[in-house]
Design a protein around this nucleic acid. Structure first.
Lengths: 334, 334
DNA sequence: TCGTCAAGAGCAATCGATTACATTCTCGTT
DNA sequence: AACGAGAATGTAATCGATTGCTCTTGACGA
């Protein structure tokens, strides 16, 4: 038994397909009796419409594609969930893709989303330069909003957090804890926010008179494993710093593990800070002082920008840097 | 400048649209010269095809919908990622929906997926009975595979873990640690695996001679907050048990927090176990003994079953219970 | 009574790609 | 030389819903 089409419903209700379409979508007025007749016929046949055919004709899929570097990273997970929620209110659905931190896979995902005619794209690009070409191309084809990270040289909307302010909050907090020297652990400088965080760290430690020894800025990747490796290297070095500032919470978890492995007390022997405030940040041993990102707000703004772009073509690219919050927990003091 | 269509490509290459279609998809042989001509014309125009039109004609979207109760739960996140990976090899994409543990929203998501003509659905149903109607309906419309949890009364494929074996492993391990009494913290019995885990706990503690006092089985929800509440209640009771068995890792994290708050040592004063082996299970204080779920395998089997159902209509529903592993960490001993 | 107008409904074109069927052409075979 | 097979290509129907345009009908004002 093949699926019922609008033609079947029309036949059963004794009206034309045009009337069925109008009765069910409410696009144009239909007399109440006919509307009821159509509704009943549709229900009887279990008619549920063909979104594909509708999308083809209307040239609109009511679907937004989202591409993130990793679904496993709780920060992106939270962001995805927030975006999905925000879209729901606009009657749109989310097409989720993971680029697995691979620019080639990312490009493929973007091509696929464009070919599938999504109405717009929300992306957190993998790489500051290697992602540029694909993102620029997609932005030419469709409304596109970058979130969290952005690639250089693409005129698209962007929503993220103010990384410089975030590092000022962290560094000033550490200075208030009488920290005299600090190390920084991050990922390779392959994307915008990683660069901004390092720049902020350097500028604000300098300003606050906190020493950063040579070799105490380690770049690897956003993972617990790297945090552990880097943490061991830093904490075993001749000049152990008073604090380790990490570019995300996963790295900070790894550093905390390294402290534990080496028998160092946090915050007694060394202070540790993270970035993102993922849900597990409150659960580590000790709970992590970190920067809270307003993901719901990031998501809401991103969706708003997308809707705006969908409406009319005009408008210069908008860049929104939202203010971060510092969440103080025990990794930087009692 | 509107997007290029197959007609534009055909005109530029001086061939028919049929030839363009065949040249680009390789569905039927085309002479090498013409193929090259078409490829060049397509490249010149930046032609990227219209997946919607293609899907309408072929009656296939190469897209699979997935519905999970929560994107925030790392277990589901890992599962989603694994499914996405498995689908990639089959040339399909993932349409992700979160039901937010709400059967009504879940039903809406399913309707939406069916209307969008996905080729199949992978779902972890929210509720053992309240999800039944929507899942049964969707299963009638499309190939559908349930993962992890399942609803009763729907003849569909299912892939999950063997919950009974899992609890046998946990309980036997605790018995080996000379545990004489235990408590159990889980979510409300609203779905299959929750029920099976409780049943397994009761059966195996009984068999192993481990006492379970009245009021030491607490049912709430799968969250850290609930674990903390339940943990406090259990650990403050007159007969504090030797061990607390939790139905998932999030609950176990909450129980660990409660132990910490009450100044109890784990594993000195009480042993704690989890379920799922999410990535953070190794990072808690102390690291959590838990059941490892083979998500990659669950995902691979789910996708395989889906492909099979896509191929031919026949075949009775298959239920695959994969064997779990016990991962022993410090929450049950040094 | 007639003309005007609007509401309600239908006809048929349309969206863009795929594909059944038809056509043309080239070989090879007898 | 005639015929048939098969490769390459074209023509046009098709997928299912939407919508511009047209037609009918009834109400209302002049």
């Amino acid at each position: 038994m093949p699926k019922a089409t609008i033609r079947d419903v029309a036949a059963r209700a004794g009206v034309s397909t045009a009337t069925v379409s109008r009765a069910l979508s409410g696009a144009r007025p239909v007399s109440p009796e006919v509307a009821e007749l159509v509704r009943r016929a549709a229900a009887d046949l279990g008619y549920s419409g063909n979104g594909i055919a509708s999308a083809l004709r209307r040239n609109r899929t009511d679907t937004v594609g989202m591409v993130v570097p990793s679904i496993a990273n709780p920060f992106f997970t939270a962001l995805v969930e927030s975006v999905e929620h925000a879209l729901q209110d606009a009657g749109q659905q989310l097409f989720l893709c993971s680029s697995r931190s691979d620019p080639a896979l990312e490009a493929q995902r973007l091509r696929s989303l464009v070919a599938r005619q999504v109405d717009g794209i929300v992306i957190s690009p993998v790489h500051g330069t290697e992602s540029t070409e694909a993102v620029a191309w997609a932005a030419r084809e469709l409304p596109l909003v970058q979130v969290d990270r952005y690639v250089t040289g693409v005129d698209s909307d962007w929503v993220g957090v103010d990384d410089d302010t975030a590092l000022r909050l962290v560094v000033d907090h550490l200075a208030g804890r009488h920290v005299r020297s600090a190390a920084f652990v991050s990922s390779q400088l392959t994307n915008s926010s990683t660069e901004l965080r390092l720049a902020g760290f350097q500028q604000h430690t300098d300003r606050a008179g906190i020493a950063v020894e040579d070799g105490q800025v380690l770049l690897g990747e956003y993972s617990i494993a790297w945090g552990r490796t880097a943490g061991e290297r830093i904490l075993r070095s001749a000049h152990r710093p008073d604090a380790v500032v990490c570019a995300d919470d996963l790295i900070a978890f790894g550093v905390l593990q390294a402290c534990h492995d080496l028998g160092l007390d946090v915050p007694g022997d060394v202070l540790v800070t993270g970035f993102d405030d993922i849900p597990y940040a409150a659960l580590s041993a000790p709970p992590l002082t970190t920067i809270h990102q307003p993901q719901e707000q990031i998501a809401a703004e991103a969706v708003r920008l997308l809707q705006r772009a969908l409406g009319r073509e005009a408008g210069p690219p908008t860049r929104i840097a939202l203010p971060p919050d510092l969440v103080v927990r025990q990794s930087t003091g009692r």
